[in-house]
Amino acid sequence: MAPPLIELIGATKRFPSGSGSVHTAVRELSMTVDPGEFVAVVGPTGCGKSTTLSLVSGLQPASAGQVRVNGDEVTAIPDGVGYMFQTDAVMPWRSVLDNVASGPRFRGESKADARAKAADWIGRVGLAGFEKYYPHQLSGGMRKRVALAQTLVTDPKILLMDEPFSALDVQTRALMQDELLRLWSGSGAAVIFVTHDLDEAIALADKVVVLTTSPATVKDVFEVPLERPRKVEDLRLTEEFRKIYSDIWESLRGEVDKARQKGATSVA
């Protein structure tokens, strides 16, 4: 049996706060992601979901415990990691083609090769014909397609996604979820997808990890035994989907209530 591609073993992350004290974002967090597995992470607002991605990406070192990718402890950004943020990381002064080509160029590919690869991915995400457009000329959904092409053009083996579709309207969001599943299918990439939307987590993932209120640790892990390929909107209408949603929400609701009470106390 192949070892996990990603392992967090008792990982803790502490940050200095503005008051001179120490804030613990995640504590003793343990989870695994296998090659080709799609894992969604849910939890209350501000619990440390994005910090978890930062630890895996090497953007932040763990304060305690271990984070491993391919069996090696993460001390810098591992090879083969693609990161898609909540806010578009497109460069407004560059065309769609040059935005998507920027990753291969940074990795040393020639301009011609990088642009050829970028053009291929622009077509895959449904933006053929928009290569010369600039970000301000695109809709929100189209910019997300550019960001998705930017992330996938380097053929990442690990795909980290931090609420990438949260700013989109409901219809565009559903389209982008289907698009992500289509492009990810068969790639072999492992995905960690952070979201506040439990519907989204279940529709996309093989496994949903529920984090506790801050400082986050893993409360529950739920398998999502829904067949692939999946059509997001059709899936949400099924009895099996509703049953999985009910089970996960029962676990998540308690943490959301705790976070709400903590917020009310701090305001008071």
Rank of each mutant, 00 (worst) to 15 (best):
V256F: 05
I158N: 04
K144D: 09
G46W: 01
S19F: 08
G103D: 07
Q150V: 06
A216F: 00
P3V: 00
R260P: 03
N70S: 15
A11L: 06
P229A: 10
F241W: 03
S110L: 13
L252V: 12
L252S: 10
D120E: 15
G43F: 10
D120N: 10
V146P: 14
L180R: 03
V125G: 13
G36P: 15
A203T: 09
T75P: 12
E233C: 00
V153T: 03
V69G: 13
R27Y: 05
G188H: 07
T51I: 07
P35V: 05
P104D: 11
G20V: 05
M1W: 10
G82S: 11
A64K: 03
R242W: 10
V96C: 10
G186W: 11
E239P: 05
D234E: 15
V224R: 04
E7N: 07
V146T: 11
A118D: 13
W184Y: 15
V39M: 06
N70K: 08
G123Y: 06
A167N: 12
H23P: 00
T238P: 01
G140K: 03
A190V: 04
G129K: 00
Y83I: 13
E28G: 07
Y245T: 02
L168W: 09
L160G: 08
N99L: 02
R143P: 09
Q261N: 12
G71M: 12
M176S: 08
L59F: 09
P135Y: 06
M91R: 01
S17M: 06
F130Q: 14
G71D: 15
C47L: 02
G263Y: 02
E227W: 02
T172L: 10
Y245W: 08
A167Q: 07
S266T: 13
A216Y: 01
V210Y: 12
V100L: 15
K13I: 00
S185C: 00
G80S: 14
E233H: 08
L8D: 03
V26H: 02
D79Q: 14
D257C: 00
A64L: 03
A25D: 02
V210D: 08
T238A: 04
S17A: 15
L159H: 07
A25I: 02
A76I: 00
T172W: 00
R94H: 08
D199R: 02
R228T: 03
Q137I: 00
L237R: 15
M31A: 10
T154S: 14
R228W: 07
A62E: 01
E7D: 06
M84T: 03
T212I: 05
D98R: 12
V100F: 10
M31N: 02
G141N: 10
G126V: 12
G103P: 06
E240N: 10
D34Y: 13
N70R: 13
R105L: 15
F15P: 10
K132G: 14
K219F: 11
E223R: 12
P229I: 07
R236E: 04
A201C: 04
S50A: 06
D206W: 01
G103K: 06
T213D: 15
K262Y: 02
S139L: 14
G82N: 11
L29G: 04
G126W: 05
L55R: 01
E73K: 01
M142C: 12
S63N: 02
V146R: 08
P92A: 07
P225R: 11
T87S: 11
P44H: 09
L252K: 05
V256Q: 04
Q171C: 05
T12V: 14
M84W: 05
I244G: 01
